[in-house]
């Protein structure tokens, strides 16, 4: 499904601020994998997602989606295969456009955007049904500007938008980190439903180790631009937070996890 082959990404190469964000990473995701990714700040988690999505271009290595080499493909073309939800709820939706307009834009992902009318009556019915299933009362607010929604509502709508065209790959970049705990839990529930319903191959970055353990069938830990731990299936199910902390301590040479890792 997704293959990263020896991918390297270096920021500010050749300067004093040089930072090797991804250091020769290789990773293969199988169809239907739901991978949670953890790691400290600056471990390269977000860079990995951004290189896959095409926001950054890899400096070395290859990225294949469904066997197709997309390493040099521009971000907007790659979007045909990829649904994304960002950490900042403001990024995933167009604030000044209506909910239905946003959903229509998502529905056209990967299709040719011609001169036919953007939203039909049938679309509207479909959107209403999808929103109703979120159980956030958004189904009667199709012509509300997204700017008027709360962060959690926006993330939920973004999730719908990211998944509605059955992407080959769903990328979630700490998409609940900016939400309060209650809303985060709700959005995570919605995430679980959408992923399992559509059997989406998913990568989810999180700072919450409990979530990383509870969700998905596979877990990856990153540190200093490398994947230092990769477990799946039963082995992952047996894992505890204590195990993860120990792993992390080992990887970071005794300099212990940052506060954020500790707290969660």
């Amino acid at each position: 499904m997704l293959e990263l082959k020896n991918v390297t990404k270096i920021f500010n190469a050749g300067t004093i601020n040089e930072k090797i964000a991804l250091d020769d990473i290789s990773l293969t995701l199988n169809d239907g994998d739901f991978v949670t990714v953890i790691g400290g700040n600056g471990a390269g988690k977000s860079t990995m997602l951004n290189v896959v999505a095409g926001t950054y271009t890899a400096d070395a290595g290859h990225i294949l989606i469904d066997g197709k080499d997309v390493t040099k493909m521009s971000e907007y073309k790659r979007a045909k295969y990829i649904g994304r939800v960002f950490q900042d709820p403001m990024i995933g939706t167009a604030a000044d456009m209506w909910i239905e307009e946003n959903m229509a834009l998502a529905q056209q992902r990967g299709t040719r955007r011609g001169l036919s009318w953007s939203i039909t009556k049938k679309d509207r019915e479909k959107f209403r049904e999808m929103l109703a299933r979120l159980d956030l009362g958004l189904e009667d607010r199709l012509s509300t500007k997204v700017a008027l929604l709360s962060g959690g509502q926006r993330q939920a709508v973004t999730l719908l938008m990211a998944s509605m065209m059955q992407p080959e790959l769903l990328l979630l970049d700490e998409h609940t980190a900016a939400l309060d705990p209650k809303t985060a839990a709700k959005v995570l529930d919605i995430t679980e439903n959408i992923v399992s319903e559509n059997k989406l191959t998913t990568i989810m970055i999180t700072h919450n180790m409990k979530d990383a353990l509870r969700l998905g069938n596979r877990l990856i830990m990153m540190h200093a631009g490398k994947i230092i731990f990769d477990v799946a299936g039963e082995e992952k199910q047996k894992l505890t937070v204590a195990d993860l902390l120990k792993k992390f301590e080992l990887a970071s040479d005794g300099t212990f996890a940052n506060d954020r890792m500790l707290l969660t």
């Binding site: 990829i82 992902r109 011609g114 001169l115």
Partner: peptide
């Protein structure tokens, strides 16, 4: 024009470029 699929894409480009690209729009 701005109600068509193409025109909506232009509006999205002006409204939120990152979002537009993530939705496959050639900004």
């Amino acid at each position: 024009f701005f109600g068509t699929k193409f025109g909506s894409g232009i509006r999205a480009t002006g409204c939120n470029e990152k979002m537009a690209r993530a939705q496959g729009i050639d900004t």
